Amino acid sequence: MNFGINTYLFSSPFTNESVKFFPKFKEWGFDFVEIALEEPELIDPVLIRKALDANALECRSVCAATGPGRDLRGNRKEQVTSIEYIQKLIDFAPVLGSKLVAGPIYSSVGRADLVPEEKYKKQWKLVVKNLQLLTAYAQEHDVKLAIEPLNRYETDFINTCEQAMQLIHDVGSDALVVHLDSFHMNLEEKDPALAIQKAGEKLGLLHASGSDRGTPGGDQINWDRIFAALDHINYQGDIVIESFTPDVKVIAKAASIWRQIEPSKEAIAIDGLKFLRSVAF
């Protein structure tokens, strides 16, 4: 397994200036960086790739930020905006060295409402159609898309691995996989370990975050069972620490981080990586 760090912990939005964090990521022992790319126009992907290479790091995944206005089940303008944004991430990913674009790309984060079943079915068909277009584009660029179930407070559309697997089935593309997150699974899955087993070979990425959005290992999640399940499916993919602090204000508000959960963002990165490596091997 390879272990990475999501840039949200240190920078939002990610810009060319954010490469200043790369030397520390390498010093702390991370294998790669997951770049959370909110606004593609703020970066020069060639420059970012050179900075990664200079620090002997990879970008193995690009994390999508589908905020307001980016919604594959929204109005026509929101759909077009979202499709164009995700296509831009697909364009940038290979330049950065990545073959994976991940996140809740199916909907705008924060859109959560109890809708009639018929309306939900119409939204589902719309997302399937749009993802079929995007997966075809991804395949042309040798990139995969990984859809992430979110907790009930952040979306009403895909909350569980089972729902994500159904969406993958309906889209019918090998370019679509599932992206699971320990924080969201802790809220929504009856058993996160069984969810991992359900994903099986379709598991394209795992985000590791404490049950309080803090350091993996310093929380109530049964990490032994998580890693036993990963071993059961012979997972050889990537694990990314995605935790948050109030220091990055935009993300703190989006993720409802109202207090200092851990001593520092550096502590989350260093202690979290040490713990994950200890339990993985």
Rank of each mutant, 00 (worst) to 15 (best):
N159E: 04
L52I: 12
E39F: 09
N186T: 02
K253F: 13
G4C: 00
P192R: 00
V250H: 12
A146Y: 12
E201I: 09
M1Q: 11
Y137C: 05
F21S: 00
R73N: 09
S11M: 03
N6I: 07
G217A: 01
K129S: 13
F14T: 07
R213E: 11
M165Q: 11
N159S: 08
A51E: 15
I43M: 05
P263N: 11
R225Y: 14
D113N: 09
E38S: 05
V128Q: 05
N222I: 05
L47Q: 15
N186M: 04
Y106A: 01
T66W: 00
W258P: 09
Q132T: 03
N159Y: 10
K274P: 03
R73W: 14
L176R: 00
Y137I: 10
P23T: 14
N16M: 07
W258H: 13
D231F: 05
F183H: 07
T81S: 07
D174W: 01
P116K: 04
N159C: 03
R277V: 02
G74A: 00
T155R: 08
G217I: 10
D156F: 14
G272T: 06
N2H: 13
C63E: 01
C63I: 15
Y137A: 01
P45G: 11
P216Y: 03
G218Y: 15
A136R: 12
V250R: 14
L42W: 03
G69V: 12
Q163V: 13
A54P: 03
I226G: 02
G69I: 12
P263I: 12
R213V: 12
G218H: 12
V33I: 15
I226C: 06
E188G: 00
D174A: 02
P246S: 07
H141P: 05
V62K: 12
L89N: 03
N159Q: 10
